[in-house]
Design a protein around this nucleic acid. Structure first.
Lengths: 204, 204
DNA sequence: TTGCATACCAGACAAATGTCTGGTATCATA
DNA sequence: TATGATACCAGACATTTGTCTGGTATGCAA
């Protein structure tokens, strides 16, 4: 039996199946691998898995159900799917279920809450944030001066650069065609930690 | 026994533990929940889990090991961690292990391979792609005219907009300070499907 | 040819894991 | 007071899951 790394070889198909299941957060049993590949014996699947472990492409917890894992990035923080909101209105951050466009995977910091917001308008193009981009926001009630934040002004969320003048809050655009805002009342919803742009239709 | 949703109540602690384990891709057994909460009986943990299922906050696959799950976005495609490369050089797409900066979670399409590439230079700022951004690239050997691609030119990868003139390939910058490139030989590594910018230090 | 390695099958067994039954303790209400 | 609900404990059992042993078939090298 020639050993080949062809993407159609059983070994590669096993690896791909396991990897996809692990990426979906649903580690498979050996029997599920068996069925997925169409083997008649559990041991057939298991030998491939053991070989993948020997090659360093998988690791396993011996004796533990669904114990095969990917060896790589388990030093990374967990990735979670966070909702992307089309709009945020006053009081709605926890109830805007109907405004959820979809979800995107985000590596979050433990203990922090995140949401995504679709950027409207061109006020932040100078910072490379275009209309239609999605900003990933860590929910927090304050931020440092200079940070890009999502703030609630007159019941509508907006993405701006925060400038703190003593106790006064200014929200600056990054586009000379727009003027800074100095709202009487304003609530910081969170700090923008990431900007994403999908270049293909149909994503999120 | 007053039923309370205090974050310190056993129910909430169970929920949090399970959610974190699921987010990490490592669904727990009932006994692992038991141990994590310090219960002396498996059944104690199980009753909380069953209650969470009854409340709709978890789902479960009856009889299946590690079968409790989150009910939400399992209609979404799987999220996978893809490597972010600092540089790509000729022949290196499969061997550039030492150039991997880290990993980012990407919702990928089944059957497609992806990698991330750190953007160098300012040639694409007109398209809102700044130096330091990460482009998520679906590996493919060709793309439509007008798409933003990663191409290998003179053994170095570059991010440009592809223009096809008959059989000839042109790589256009999105910044008037740069000129289009018409390389004699050039290989398309893939199509840019997403642009990401991290606004905090320390992220990939 | 033999020997070895790989890749699969079949069956049985051990351990992990889910589940059930019976129990005690506490609290609130009628 | 009795009753019902909640929350835990303890033990046993059923099922799932991992693992092992023995086997056949194929290809390759000595």
């Amino acid at each position: 039996m020639a050993q080949q790394k062809d993407r159609h070889s059983a070994r590669e198909r096993v690896y791909r199946f396991v990897r996809e299941r692990l990426a979906a957060g649903r580690p498979p049993t050996v029997r599920e691998v068996q069925e997925a590949l169409g083997f008649r014996a559990v041991q057939s699947a298991r030998e491939h898995l053991e070989r993948l472990v020997a090659e360093g492409r998988l690791t396993k917890r011996a004796g533990e159900a669904r114990g095969y894992r990917l060896p790589e990035p388990d030093a990374k923080p967990p990735a979670a799917l966070v909702p992307v909101l089309g709009r945020v209105q006053a009081g709605a951050l926890t109830t805007a279920v109907e405004d959820i466009e979809g979800y995107v995977p985000v590596q979050h910091k433990a203990g922090s809450e995140y949401f995504g917001l679709r950027v409207q308008g061109d006020s932040m193009t100078g910072a490379g944030i275009l209309a239609g981009d999605i900003v990933i926001v860590r929910a927090q009630p304050s931020a440092d001066s200079g940070a890009i934040v999502v703030a609630l002004v007159e019941d509508e969320a907006t993405v701006k650069r925060l400038r703190l003048r003593g106790q006064r809050i200014e929200l600056h655009p990054e586009n000379p065609a727009f003027s800074p805002i100095t709202p009487e009342e304003c609530r910081i919803l969170g700090k923008v930690v990431e900007v994403r742009r999908f270049l293909e239709e149909g994503e999120v």
